[in-house]
């Protein structure tokens, strides 16, 4: 009996702690692909009637012209929607969002932002998110929900009139959609830069440990 117990402990102790469970890794990378397809085709659509005094470089758009961009956008939306829903439902049901992202306290955020700006914010324990990470990860989920809702409002403004009303009117939903995209792009830059600065976090998102 005694030797059996020891063996069990050894088996359990051998693999490193799982930081990112498989469902997080799978939805993360599907989301990364879906986001890039949505952003590049979205830039193509934006260029057809720019909201501001600039267009996106043609090399960074998908679809070749407006019609192609729309086809890509309305195809990749399924990937984004289904994957996003699976992520949200699993995150809520397993309690991962609550455990990893909460609480977010103002004092915690201020402390960690200050630490980050003075390069004193450590990443020793990848299983615990600091307050900057919590704020960004929770924030990007809210932005993700908003960009989908504003997108649906623009896609079917007659059928989903109540969604349009939620944003005020159709042109406002367009601006919301644009600024959510801008927020996601800004997040992407910081997120990728930090992942490269802390390679073990990238490894954890690929092999889990």
């Amino acid at each position: 009996m005694a030797s059996l117990t020891v063996t069990d402990e050894q088996v359990r102790a051998t693999p490193a702690k799982v930081i990112q469970p498989a469902w997080v890794r799978v939805t993360h990378w599907i989301n990364a692909l879906a986001m890039i397809l949505m952003i590049l085709s979205g830039w193509q659509i934006y260029n057809a009637s720019p909201l501001f005094g600039f267009s996106f470089p043609r090399d960074y758009t998908l679809g070749g012209w407006l019609g192609g961009g729309l086809l890509w956008h309305f195809a990749a939306m399924w990937l984004l929607m289904i994957n996003g829903l699976a992520y949200l439902v699993t995150g809520l049901a397993t309690g991962r969002f609550r455990k990893k992202l909460l609480p977010i306290t103002p004092s915690g955020v201020i402390h960690d932002v200050r630490a980050a700006l003075t390069f004193k914010l450590g990443h020793d324990d990848l299983t615990v998110y600091n307050y900057v990470q919590r704020t960004l990860y929770a924030g990007i989920i809210v932005v993700g929900v908003l960009i989908v809702l504003s997108g649906l409002a623009m896609w079917k403004p007659v059928q989903l009139y109540y969604l349009v009303m939620l944003f005020g009117d159709y042109p406002t939903a367009r601006y919301v959609h644009f600024f959510c995209m801008a927020a996601i792009c800004a997040f992407l830059v910081v997120h990728v830069a930090l992942a490269l600065l802390v390679p073990k976090s990238l490894r954890a998102m690929i092999i889990g440990r």
Partner: peptide, 17 residues
């Protein structure tokens, strides 16, 4: 223009992905 996908598909990012 009719072969509108060609332009998009040659995109390095997509091939990379």
């Amino acid at each position: 223009r009719r072969r509108f996908i060609t332009g998009g598909a040659s995109l390095g990012a997509l091939t990379l992905l």
